[in-house]
Structure formats: C-alpha cells, structure tokens
C-alpha cells in the first residue's frame, strides 16, 4: 500500500516505533516462509535447496502450500502467458508483507525462450513486482541462498509501522542505496484479496 501521502511524523524518527519496527523486521527476516511454487526446471533446484545439502530451513524458510501463509514467492521457472495471470492471482492471495524472488533466466527475462517462443512471458516482472532477480539457468541452490540473503537485507529495511518501502536495492552498492528514491507503482490498485478460491 502506498502511504506516501500520509500525514504525520516519520515512523523511524519515533524512538519506540523504531524499536518495535526493528524487532518486527528481525522477525520477518528470520521467518520467510516461501510458497511452494515451482513451474519448471528451477523448481528442481528449489527442491534441492530445501534438501539436506543446502537446507534453506536453516534460514527459517519453510515451504507453505497455501499463499496465505507464505511471505515469499520464489518464481522458479518459465512463466507462460497462460500461467502469468495465475501467478498474479497467487501474489494477490499472499498477505502483506510479501516478497517476490525471480529465480532463473526464464523468470528474469524469458531466458532461452525469450527470442523464439510465442508463448512465454518475457520476465515475470511484467506481472508482479520483483524484489530480487537471480541469474542462472537454473541457478545453483547456493545462488538462490545468495539471493535470499540479499532479500533479507531488504526485508530488514522494510518498515511495518511506517511507510512501505519498495525501493530498488542494489546488492553491490553502498550500505543503503536508493533509500526512498523510487516511485512506487500502484500494484495494489486491485483489491489484494482474490477471494476464496484457495490456490485453485
């Protein structure tokens, strides 16, 4: 929700709110439940990342089958035009705060299918706001964890009590680049709740 116009003090200037916010952010950072959403090849690597070798449960990430209980959607794999609307629906069914990681070339830009295919969406960021892009085809599970660590940096700066921070964030930049410098497109113009369909 964009709350840029809301009057009142900045939340992070209020000492108690800032402490609460920091605590909440700590909780969010360490408890990113991800939606069990695997479409194609990257889905296998996503499974491997949940497996004993890489074990994203270490980071407090467990898979949830229903979008309501998930905080993080890892778009793992090719999204076709037929599927894109469903991804959007799933994203809308997730509850705020929610995050999207685009995993692999297909979700980033259409990847191998960007040039020739008539049916593949060139980049999931046309449908849902993406927080982190992870390159690879498919990315190694370690690359996924790498991206998740970057996401956690971003989650840490997310303010629950104050404004919504959806600014772009450069992984390799200085400490907090581009803080509050970004126009936020109104992704929530439609009612966020998709209604009782579950994940159907």
């Amino acid at each position: 929700m964009t709350t840029d116009e809301r009057p009142g003090n900045r939340a992070d200037e209020q000492v108690h709110m800032a402490a609460v916010d920091e605590f909440l952010a700590w909780g969010k950072e360490h408890s990113l439940f991800y939606l069990l959403f695997a479409t194609a090849c990257c889905g296998i690597e996503l499974m491997q990342a949940g497996g004993p070798r890489y074990d994203v449960d270490r980071l407090g990430m467990i898979p949830r089958a229903t979008p309501r209980q998930a905080d993080l959607m890892i778009v793992a794999g090719t999204i076709t035009h037929k599927m894109a609307g469903r991804v959007r629906t799933l994203w809308e069914q997730m509850t705020e705060p929610r995050w999207v990681v685009s995993m692999g070339s297909c979700a980033n830009s259409g990847g191998p299918f960007s040039k020739w295919s008539y049916s593949v969406l060139n980049g999931i960021d046309k449908y849902v706001p993406v927080d982190i892009y992870i390159p690879g085809c498919p990315p190694r599970p370690e690359a996924l964890i790498d991206g998740v660590m970057a996401l956690r940096e971003r989650v840490k700066r997310y303010r629950t009590v104050g404004e919504r921070d959806r600014t772009p964030y450069i992984v390799a930049g200085p400490e907090a680049p581009f803080g509050g410098h970004c126009k936020v497109p109104d992704f929530t113009a439609k009612k966020p709740d998709g209604g009782g369909g579950g994940s159907a």
Partner: peptide
C-alpha cells in the same frame, strides 16, 4: 500452462 513451444 508450461507450453514453451520448444518444438517450434
């Protein structure tokens, strides 16, 4: 839902 037109 995953038709990627690979044959094409």
């Amino acid at each position: 839902y995953l038709h990627r037109s690979i044959e094409k």
